[in-house]
């Protein structure tokens, strides 16, 4: 079959799986500095699904794209190490503070700059905002069908993809014409590891704004090997309407944030002795909690 052009939307997120006590500032806001950043877990699954199609269909190209601060280029490099062909960084202060509507607008403006695409993939959801909204909103703006919560691609032809979806109460197999947008569920196969050879090859891949004036060696390398320069697009590069991006393009606003402190109450601490367990069971029965 014909080679495909696949775009994978990837996001760098604070590692909310390991939120420690110092992750919150006293005023209840998130102390982003105290949280490690990671490749959003679902997005790695999406990348795997894309790379798997690339294995199956010769000539297929996988481009990863992220909107975020400069350091998010880390996950682009990570993707290149695992097998992605290209990466695009969308970064501009004016994109900051975006909700999902503004995020999807921005990503779609960038996708529309690409010569062509057959499948847009993303994670089902990001572990910080946890909304699962960006995928469907991009699909609507691109005017393509969406297939959400995909856990595997069953077959693909020149103009149709058949995928298995994981729903809250079951599974569903659907077919969709191409182009389409797919969001990938964490139940799909985990992403392959980084490849040593590719790490060597892409170790110095950088966006221009990551290269400091005294990085002469990297600059020279980039002029010899243009594929090492990760394109970086700002507001003007994607012809974005400034009223639709960042904070001003975001209808949802955070009014207040409260951190959840687990309240310690006075527990009865028991051992596993017969006496302790029997006493507890009797108390529960007496108080009509059980029995």
């Amino acid at each position: 079959m014909r080679p495909l052009k696949i775009v994978v939307l990837i996001k760098q997120v604070p590692d909310t799986r390991n939120v420690g006590p110092d992750a919150m500032k006293p005023d209840g806001t998130v102390n982003r500095g105290k949280l490690d950043t990671v490749f959003n877990p679902d997005d790695l699954h999406a990348l795997e699904l894309a790379l798997n199609l690339k294995d199956r269909i010769p000539g297929t190209e996988v481009t990863v794209m992220t909107m975020g601060p400069r350091r998010a280029a880390d996950i682009i490099r990570d993707s290149l190490y695992r097998g992605a062909d290209h990466g695009i960084m969308i970064s501009d202060k004016r994109f900051g503070g975006a909700d999902t509507l503004a995020t999807s607008y921005t990503l779609v403006r960038a996708i529309q700059k690409l010569p062509s695409y057959d499948i847009i993939m993303g994670g089902r959801q990001a572990i910080d905002g946890d909304t699962a909204q960006v995928g469907p909103q991009c699909a609507e703006k691109l005017g393509v069908p969406q297939v959400t919560y995909v856990e595997g691609i069953i077959s693909i032809t020149d103009d149709e993809v058949v995928a298995k979806r994981r729903l809250s109460k079951g599974v569903e197999t659907v077919s969709s014409p191409l182009p389409c947008l797919i969001t990938v569920h964490g139940a799909s196969p985990a992403c392959r590891s980084k490849v040593a050879k590719r790490i060597m090859q892409y170790k110095y891949a950088r966006t221009n704004s990551e290269i400091r004036p005294n990085d002469g060696f990297i600059k020279e390398l980039h002029s010899k090997r243009p594929y090492l320069t990760i394109p970086e697009w700002g507001v003007e590069d994607i012809d974005a309407d400034e009223t639709k991006i960042g904070l001003s393009g975001s209808p949802t606003k955070v009014k207040s944030v409260e951190s959840i402190v687990l309240t310690a109450n006075e527990a009865k601490v028991l051992s596993d002795s017969d006496l302790d367990i029997e006493t507890m069971i009797k108390e529960l029965i007496d108080h009509h909690i059980i029995g």
């Binding site: 909700d99 999902t100 509507l101 999807s104 905002g129 946890d130 909304t131 699962a132 909204q133 960006v134 995928g135 469907p136 909103q137 699909a139 609507e140 703006k141 969406q146 959400t148 919560y149 729903l167 809250s168 109460k169 975001s250 209808p251 949802t252």
Partner: peptide, 23 residues
């Protein structure tokens, strides 16, 4: 916030150009 609602609502929010709070 089900597999139906989380599939449909964001598509609609985009079409209506309005905000959507998740979950």
């Amino acid at each position: 916030a089900t597999s139906v609602g989380r599939d449909l609502a964001p598509r609609l929010a985009s079409a209506l150009n309005c905000g959507l709070t998740a979950d």
